[in-house]
């Protein structure tokens, strides 16, 4: 491996990592702003103009809080919980293609950290690992509320991962590849976006993404009203901060995955008709990609301040009795349509 390649990847990883953290940080502010606006309030606006320093203030507060590990807690697992949560959240963005190639001099730089040919499987695997962080944290706290939250998180993410996987299978039948880079490359322009081919699959995927991120209306693992704080009841200081942070990073990454799989990733309308150079198209593409991601993050928040939380049995009913049959029906439908298309066109 040549040095330039390693440096290039290292720089890219650093940029992606920093961007992820900054976006997660500002998602906390955006969440509170959106909450405020939807409730006819202003949201936080005291720290800096329009409250843009609020995330820094929150972070500073987290660092200066006393760190408490309960006497009955399993110490090493208690620490491992938030660690796993944040690590899995951070590494899941590795396979996302942020843009096409940048050409600097005679070097062609891929704007993707790792182009592995089972990209989607990687994302699924890492997201599935993420629930361990919650489970370990909840169990190690030695607190009934935490344990309840952890159990809910585990059962919820298992139930919804199935429907999510099934909805992805239908997508893969259309795209014929598992590599996210190829999937995005297929959707160039506007009419080739997968959302036009897989609208039902997209709805199922979004619903499951909400459940996987523990977002309202599926935030049963941490519902304040019944379980105090759910799995992070006993956590304080930066450990709690890491849990919160991993939630927002997950939201960012799942927004990125959704826009890459269904909304064309870095592709934007009329990209091939503008007559711009490759570098410019790449740069605009990256911006378009982030615009889509932000739109999805806003959508996440929009839903959060619209819908109330599901009851536990409703959650399970929705997952097992509605989403999974729907996803299977979607696969069958996709198969039939693909077959008809291949035979008669």
């Amino acid at each position: 491996m040549e040095t330039a390649f390693i440096i290039e990847k290292f720089v890219l990883i650093t940029i992606v990592f920093v961007l992820t953290l900054v976006i997660a940080m500002y998602s906390t502010l955006a969440e509170r702003k959106v909450a405020g606006f939807m409730q006819d309030r202003n949201g936080p606006d005291r720290a800096g103009p329009f409250g843009i320093l609020q995330p820094l203030a929150d972070g500073g507060k987290f660092f200066f809080k006393e760190e408490i590990i309960p006497a009955g807690a399993h110490k090493s697992l208690f620490i491992a919980g938030p660690t796993i949560a944040i690590i899995t959240a951070c590494i899941s963005s590795a396979v996302i293609p942020w843009g096409q190639q940048l050409t600097i001099g005679d070097r062609v730089i891929d704007l993707q950290v790792a182009d592995i040919n089972v990209g989607i499987l990687y994302v699924f695997g890492v997201i599935a690992l993420g629930v361990y962080g919650i489970m370990l944290g909840g169990w190690a706290s030695n607190n009934k509320f935490s344990l309840m939250g952890a159990i809910r998180a585990a059962s919820q993410s298992i139930s919804y991962e199935i429907a999510m996987g099934l909805s992805i299978i239908a997508l893969l039948m259309v795209t014929q590849t598992l590599s996210i880079k190829d999937i995005v490359a297929q959707q160039s322009g506007f009419v080739n976006w997968n959302i036009w081919v897989q609208p039902l699959g997209f709805i199922i995927f979004v619903t499951c993404a909400f459940a996987e991120c523990n977002r309202v209306p599926f935030d049963l693992p941490e519902c304040e009203t019944e379980l105090v704080g759910g799995y992070h009841t006993e956590y304080s200081s930066m450990k709690l901060g890491l849990y919160m942070f991993s939630e927002y990073i997950n939201m960012f990454v799942s927004s990125a995955v959704m826009s890459a799989l269904y909304f064309g990733g870095y592709n934007f309308p009329f990209m091939n008709d503008l007559g711009l150079s490759q570098n410019w198209i790449t740069i605009i593409g990256v911006l378009a990609f982030f615009l889509k991601i932000f739109a999805f993050i806003f959508f996440f928040m929009w839903i959060r301040w619209t819908l109330p939380r599901f009851r536990y049995d409703q959650l399970m009913n929705l997952g097992w009795k509605i989403l999974i049959p729907l996803a299977i029906a979607n696969i069958v439908l996709t198969g039939i349509i693909t077959l008809i298309k291949d035979t008669y066109w």
């Binding site: 006819d40 929009w302 301040w305």
Partner: peptide, 13 residues
């Protein structure tokens, strides 16, 4: 909710 998002805010800073 989106209608409320663009509504004039009741808050007096």
């Amino acid at each position: 909710t989106i209608r409320h998002f663009f509504k004039k805010k009741a808050t007096v800073s």
